[in-house]
């Protein structure tokens, strides 16, 4: 064993990268500290713990009389209304989303600004707060679930059309070419090649959106646009913690069941 071992060379330094990493780290930490400073932490109700306890207790001792009493104002009816709002809203938005998706999809044959402008429009729709949209529709059609349906229907377009357009972008060109080569028009291409290939993605994205819509529909009521959110906010205001508990349980069960069903359908689809 006469091999003389070389000494471990020092770690190579990439100064640029190091500076970059440290800058990011410092900026992040500063941002976090900045967020803590000046935040108004005062004003927490002294009874906070007690109320939280009451809500949790309410979850375990639900107000059974409220679950179903046939008045149409009970939990089951309100949950059902929520589901209907989500269903109709999603349906409307899926239909509106299709033309938007074709507009925003960045395919080979389009000028770059066409799809870019479509994407910007969708981004604006996505960023427009759903709650505000709901309030605007309340002004237009009055308070109630119709306003919720419309708000959901329009707001979901932002996300759904984006997902659709991505699905269009991921399509293979081959089938389209075959229709073109057979003398098909642009519309023929859409009907014969694009749509059949697109269908699974459309259905699966719409189902996914339905999951999201169920959650949205359950908060629209907070501003008076129908669904389970309204009785919840009332119960919170009147400090009926048992009722808050049972409504929460209801929402959780509803969301879990819907997620499960739509997941099952999506799995069957592929």
């Amino acid at each position: 064993m006469d091999t003389t071992m070389k000494k471990l060379p020092p770690k190579p330094v990439d100064t640029k990268k190091k500076i970059q990493h440290w800058t990011i780290a410092i900026v992040t930490v500063v941002l976090i500290i900045w967020s803590f400073v000046g935040m108004d932490f005062g004003g927490i109700k002294a009874s906070a713990g007690q109320i939280a306890g009451a809500i949790v207790a309410g979850i375990f001792h639900p107000d059974w009389s409220y679950v179903y009493n046939g008045s149409g104002e009970d939990l089951i009816s309100q949950l059902w209304e929520t589901i209907c709002i989500a269903f109709l809203g999603t349906f409307i938005s899926a239909i509106i989303s299709l033309p938007f998706a074709f507009w925003a999809a960045n395919t080979r044959h389009k000028k770059w600004y066409t799809s870019r402008s479509g994407k910007v429009v969708l981004a604006v729709i996505r960023s427009f707060p759903e709650i505000v949209l709901a309030l605007m529709f309340i002004k237009a059609v009055g308070p109630g679930s119709a306003a919720g349906v419309l708000a959901l229907g329009f707001h979901s377009v932002g996300m759904l059309a984006k997902l659709f357009s991505e699905a269009i972008e991921n399509l293979e060109e081959g089938a389209n070419e075959a229709v073109t080569a057979a003398g098909g028009s642009k519309f023929n291409i859409i009907m014969f090649a694009t749509m059949p290939n697109l269908m699974p993605a459309l259905i699966s994205n719409t189902l996914y959106r339905f999951d999201v819509s169920i959650r949205s529909a359950s908060i629209l009521g907070l501003v008076g646009a129908g669904g389970i959110g309204y009785p919840l906010i009332i119960a919170l205001q009147y400090r009926q913690w048992n009722r808050v508990g049972v409504i929460l349980v209801g929402i959780i069960v509803m969301v879990v069941v819907i997620d499960w069903i739509s997941g099952w359908i999506r799995k069957k689809l592929v």
């Binding site: 935040m39 108004d40 932490f41 005062g42 004003g43 927490i44 109700k45 906070a48 109320i51 939280a52 809500i55 919170l236 400090r239 808050v244």
Partner: peptide, 9 residues
Amino acid sequence: VAVVGIGPV
């Protein structure tokens, strides 16, 4: 909001 009161917390 119901638990801790109105505010950013």
